[in-house]
Design a protein around this nucleic acid. Structure first.
Lengths: 183, 183
DNA sequence: TCTATAGCATACAAAATGTTCGGAAACAAC
DNA sequence: GTTGTTTCCGAACATTTTGTATGCTATAGA
């Protein structure tokens, strides 16, 4: 990708993130974004058709990193859903999030929470689905597989939400333990 | 409240609900709403300052009914969180929702799901909070109260979401059992 | 150095927002 | 029924936002 294109794309993302931190998604206008990004109006529309598309692209970009990392860890013989395993994928997700090396924590903690946690859950569901066997042992036989799958993704996402909205006081190990105790 | 005022207020709600069923919240315009409600532009703004306010008012109105009913059942010696109890509040919530006497099921099943399930969870959390003692017995002592409280509300809400998004095939008794098995 | 591409400023049409006004109809209270 | 109040309407209006078009400049990458 052309360096110029990369740069403006990034400028738009940054401006969008900064605005999401202060205003609700619905109130943010393209005008505000391009002003903050210091980018021409036509340029914006050359990159993204609408504000919604911008949001989607941002989500894809951010979550790709997180879940790529989670995928990678699988090869290093980690366990997706073993309470005892000290290096479960869930723990790693919390650890990775806590580092806040990219701006994902900003977005997951901002007033527009729901927008991103929704995407997060979808991605997580796919991740869990691809390793269904690893955690079916924990399931009560009376529960349908589809329900159980969704339940794990939902519980993790809601645990994450709780952690974020309560100031992230607990270390990753503790909040992961809460998750395991709850699910 | 003046009858005229009641009528237009309702017409606006109905139009809004019908539109939410077909379009995403962000795309719905005040113009569409007033056209469908057959109401003057100035009239709309006399009732609601913004589209957001309309949404909030709608949520308040609808959920008030549901949770009022749930509150009432308490007096009839039901149990909030007893697996065995055949008349737990949770079962009653599912039963009440299945009847679909008001338009709440339409809204909870539409593409704008998240908007309403978020409000639902908030309301439910308050309900559970007010009866904290009734279900603390089920809690693992290592979990903080605040986490547990949130977890129950979240799990019920996500169970409800799953039920809705999978066509509500299970009878209230079954889906309530799933909830109890999961939480 | 050359060429394709990205960006800029500006201008513009179209749509949506939010406000104002005077007159008509419905209401409530007497 | 009369009266005073409230609500609605229609229409007009200013403002904001959206999305597109254009001609020119700067830069990337070969």
């Amino acid at each position: 990708m052309d360096r110029r294109r990369r740069k403006t794309r990034n400028a738009i993302f940054e401006a969008f993130i900064a605005l999401l931190d202060r205003h609700s998604y619905g109130q943010i206008t393209v005008g505000q974004i391009i002003e903050r990004a210091d980018v021409g109006r036509a340029t914006f529309y050359a990159h993204f058709e609408t504000k919604e598309e911008l949001l989607k692209a941002l989500c894809r970009e951010l979550f790709a990193h997180i879940f790529e990392a989670a995928e990678g860890e699988e090869t290093a013989h980690s366990y997706l859903f073993d309470c005892q395993a000290p290096d479960s994928v869930f723990l790693h997700l919390f650890q990775h999030l806590q580092k806040d090396d990219n701006r994902i924590l900003t977005l997951l903690s901002c007033r527009n929470n729901d927008l991103f946690l929704g995407y997060f859950k979808e991605e997580l569901r796919e991740l869990i689905k691809s390793r269904e066997a690893q955690f079916s042992g924990r399931k009560d036989p009376r529960l349908p597989d589809a329900f159980w799958l969704d339940h794990i993704a939902a519980t993790f996402t809601e645990t994450l939400r709780w952690w974020l909205e309560n100031g992230r006081k607990e270390p990753p190990e503790t909040i992961t333990e809460y998750f395991y105790l709850a699910v």
